[in-house]
Amino acid sequence: MLEKLGLIALAGAAGTLARYWLSGLVYDLAGREFPWGTAAVNILGCFLFGLVWELGGDRMIIRTETRAIILTGFMGAFTTFSTFIFESGAFLEDGRILPALANVGFQTVLGFAALFGGLMLGRML
């Protein structure tokens, strides 16, 4: 278990550095008038999440434990947006449109509320 935690931590460090490098590169190329760096990370993260999930599924090209390390460690640090999209997509794939829309709406609305709540609290302190 300790070895697995260490591998998740290392993968997380790699994901953090990859996010920093990629978003910085995209911002340098495209400018900062729109969050292109974040968008690039999130979109690539969604693609990579789907690829790793499939390669570790029925096809077993990636071992289940390795897939967990990549998705939890690397992808968790690279972007959690990919997990959010994957979970919402799983609802859609199962034909469960209402839970998919509820998940997107719930997390988006409450995410904005939490952001502005944190900003307000920070300004009061």
Rank of each mutant, 00 (worst) to 15 (best):
W21F: 03
M124Q: 11
N42Q: 10
L119T: 13
R59Q: 14
G122A: 05
G111Y: 03
M120P: 10
A102L: 14
L17T: 03
L5Y: 15
L110G: 03
G118A: 13
N42M: 09
A77D: 01
I43C: 02
A77F: 03
L5K: 10
M120W: 15
Y20P: 02
L125N: 12
A39G: 00
G117E: 02
F106C: 13
G111F: 04
T72K: 05
G24Y: 02
F86K: 01
G73A: 07
T66M: 02
G57C: 02
T79M: 04
W53C: 08
A9D: 13
G15N: 01
G24H: 10
L10F: 12
F86C: 07
T79C: 02
G6W: 07
G76W: 04
A114S: 08
G105D: 11
R63N: 14
L29R: 04
G50H: 05
I97W: 12
W53E: 09
R123E: 12
F47G: 09
F81M: 06
L29K: 00
G76L: 06
L48V: 05
V52I: 07
A40M: 00
A13Y: 08
G56K: 01
L29M: 06
A14S: 03
A30D: 03
L2V: 13
R67E: 09
L121S: 12
L110C: 10
Y20H: 04
G105S: 11
I61A: 15
G117F: 13
A113F: 10
G111L: 05
A39P: 01
L44D: 04
A14K: 06
M60K: 15
I61H: 14
Q107A: 11
V26Y: 04
I85E: 01
R63S: 12
E65W: 11
F49C: 04
P35S: 03
T16F: 10
I61W: 15
S88V: 02
G56D: 00
S23Y: 09
A14V: 11
V109W: 10
M120K: 14
L5C: 15
E3W: 15
A14N: 02
L71S: 09
G31H: 00
I61S: 12
T64S: 15
V41A: 00
L92T: 10
A9K: 11
L110A: 09
M120Y: 14
R67F: 01
Y20K: 01
E33Q: 11
D94Y: 11
R32Y: 09
M60P: 10
G73Y: 01
I69W: 03
V26I: 09
I69T: 01
N42T: 05
V104W: 07
G57V: 06
G117Q: 10
T66Y: 07
A102I: 12
L98E: 10
I43M: 09
M1L: 12
L22M: 05
D94H: 14
N42E: 04
L5F: 15
I62V: 11
G56L: 00
P35L: 04
S23T: 05
F74Q: 03
E33A: 12
S82I: 04
G117L: 11
L125A: 14
A77N: 00
I69N: 00
R32N: 07
E65Y: 08
L125P: 11
G50I: 00
G56C: 02
E54H: 10
S23C: 05
G50C: 06
T64Q: 15
I43G: 03
T66W: 07
E65D: 10
G76H: 04
G89A: 03
N103F: 15
F49K: 02
G50E: 05
W21Q: 01
P99D: 08
Y20Q: 08
R96M: 14
E3A: 14
D58C: 05
